[in-house]
């Protein structure tokens, strides 16, 4: 009982703090100088239409590389934690999925993968990018695993794909060091025509690599949780 009271008290304290923050907040009327710099630099200097992707892949590119490394670490640690656990032989008696899931997956799976590829490749033009598209692809893999419990994902293929994408990503970054202003600078490729698919320098290439890497890593995580 006292525990309940204490947690209620903690919640109330947090609610009080949050109410202070929300009550004292007034909607912004102008952008900060940094935001204004990004909003002019990304379309004019980098040639990308989507400012958020421009920030993520070029200005904060090193950070994005670190994020992908975190995802890799997660795939590895989930593998260590779940590998060789006694639950491994449970997959054989997995119940058959319902008729609806099994047949629906046949129609919708190609569409999901196509949509994922579209989101990855249009990251510099419209809403989307490598992370988002990779997550869409991984959700397709999730559906595949649910609809056909028997299918085994090829772990070796997935890890080779994602390692290759990671290596090319880093090599592109080092190319930026050599041919352009710094690590992961997207000026190593021509800017192209604003708004076309092959524009914005190296951003679409890095975006595609990110998408491949994230999709493969999330698929590995899903597969680890299944077995």
């Amino acid at each position: 009982m006292t525990k309940r009271v204490f947690s209620l008290l903690a919640i109330l304290v947090f609610a009080f703090i949050f109410a202070g923050v929300a009550g004292g907040y007034s909607e912004r009327q102008t952008l900060s100088p940094l935001a204004r710099h990004y909003l002019t630099a990304v379309p004019q200097d980098l040639g990308g239409a989507n400012v958020v992707t421009g920030i993520l892949i070029t200005f904060r590119g090193f950070d994005t590389l670190g994020e992908v490394a975190v995802l890799f670490m997660v795939a590895a640690s989930v593998g260590i934690l779940l590998g060789g656990s006694p639950t491994q032989n449970r997959t054989n008696q997995a119940p058959r999925p319902s008729e609806l899931v099994e047949n629906g997956a046949k129609i919708i799976l190609p569409l999901i993968f196509l949509f994922g590829a579209y989101v990855i490749m249009n990251g510099h033009l419209s809403a989307g990018g490598g992370f988002q598209g990779g997550a869409v692809v991984a959700s397709g893999v999730m559906l595949l695993v649910l609809a056909r419990p028997g299918t085994g994902l090829h772990q070796g293929f997935l890890s080779v794909t994602e390692s290759l994408a990671g290596v090319i990503y880093v090599v592109l970054g080092i190319c930026g060091l050599w041919f352009a202003g710094g690590f992961l600078d997207s000026h190593i490729l021509p800017k192209g025509e604003f708004g076309s698919l092959a524009s914005a320098g190296a951003i679409p290439v890095i975006s595609a690599l990110l998408g491949i890497k994230v999709g493969a890593e999330l698929s590995v995580v899903i597969d680890r949780f299944r077995s």
Binding site: L31, S32, Y38, L39, R60, T64
Partner: peptide, 12 residues
């Protein structure tokens, strides 16, 4: 336009 920085941070 809205501030793109929080959006980029939230992706992270």
């Amino acid at each position: 336009s809205v501030d793109p920085i929080p959006a980029a941070l939230v992706v992270t």
